[in-house]
Design a binder for these strands. Structure first.
Length: 290
DNA sequence: GATTCGTGGCC
DNA sequence: TGGCCAAGAAT
């Protein structure tokens, strides 16, 4: 197809960001941690936390030995803290069932908590050089434009998305090619205001050739945050992150006026295992108090 | 397939 | 100013 591998790989060699999880000395565990942290989270916010994590927990077994509370506190404000819990559980599974080595196989990776279609293939490709389609939001957008001539990708469909990228994947240097596709989407073929003048595959781009028509797919519902349970859960968890000792419910009640929503959120945090109640009825991050 | 799940920066 | 967006996964 049109997205010439050599052109893209050469562009990547010249323009790729120097990210720590791309360094040759980065371990597969480091790659895995980066991929989990980068889910729905910008690179700039991930990088400092990733450095702290790898220094503190350089292996899966090292993290497996930490408590859930320690892990949640170290996760800080990266967002979606269930990722931290799942990564901790994945570290335990890797330590106990895989000899402390991050699995090579996509299927074995998929079986780990918090690892889905994207992350499993990203680890297989970027940590082990395996040839497999790696499809994130950047790649979906690049393919939508360059191949299908659409301004943006429609709703995701794992089966179709994987097939699309599989068809593009070169036989050689497929992992670097995948990294290049992602980087192109992150730096040039961006969601808003793409830098088409800087694009290495402009001549091959179907969207460009078609006069860059506007997006005509189904309308995407904007995700709200203010006033949602997500915000309230975040506020509650932030209290517990900031204290070493369990706190009384009154300390949590002050973060949100609506008692019904507040209690519902606290309950859901308990169900999710992000918060624990002690025998004396106080609240804390999990795994640190009896 | 549609929803839910944090957080903060940017145009 | 505020909607949009950022390397998704689980249900």
């Amino acid at each position: 197809m049109s997205l010439d591998a050599e052109v893209l790989i050469d562009w990547f060699a010249d323009h790729a960001r120097d990210l720590p999880w791309r360094r040759p000395e980065c371990t597969p565990w480091g790659v895995l941690v980066s991929e989990i942290m980068l889910q729905q989270t910008p690179v700039a916010r991930v990088e400092p936390v990733w450095r702290e994590w790898l220094a503190r927990w350089p292996t899966p077994s090292a993290m497996a030995a930490a408590t859930q509370g320690e892990v949640l506190r170290a996760w800080g404000k990266l967002g979606y803290p269930r990722r931290a819990l799942r990564l901790h559980a994945a570290a335990q599974a890797i330590a106990e069932q895989h000899g402390d080595e991050v699995p090579h196989d996509v299927d074995a990776l998929l079986a780990l908590p918090g690892i889905g279609a994207y992350t499993a293939r990203a680890v297989a490709a970027f940590a082990y050089g395996k040839r497999c389609p790696v499809v994130d939001t950047n790649v979906r957008r690049v393919v939508a434009r360059a191949v299908h001539g659409a301004a943006d990708a429609g709703p995701p469909s794992t089966t179709r998305d994987l097939a699309d990228v599989e068809a593009l994947l070169p036989d050689q240097r497929a992992a670097v090619y995948s990294a290049a596709l992602m980087e192109l989407g992150a730096l040039v073929c961006t969601a808003r205001t793409p830098r088409c003048a800087d694009c290495p595959v402009l001549a091959a781009c179907a969207w460009q050739r078609g006069g860059r028509p506007a997006y005509d797919g189904p309308v995407k519902v904007a995700q709200k945050f203010a006033g949602t349970d997500r915000q309230v859960r975040g506020l509650l968890l932030d209290v517990l992150r900031g204290t070493a000792e369990p706190v009384a419910k009154s300390r949590l009640d002050v973060v949100w006026a609506d008692a019904g929503q507040r209690d519902r959120c606290l309950h859901s945090l308990l169900v999710d295992g992000l918060v624990e109640q002690t025998a004396s009825g106080l609240f804390a991050l999990p795994g640190e108090h009896r």
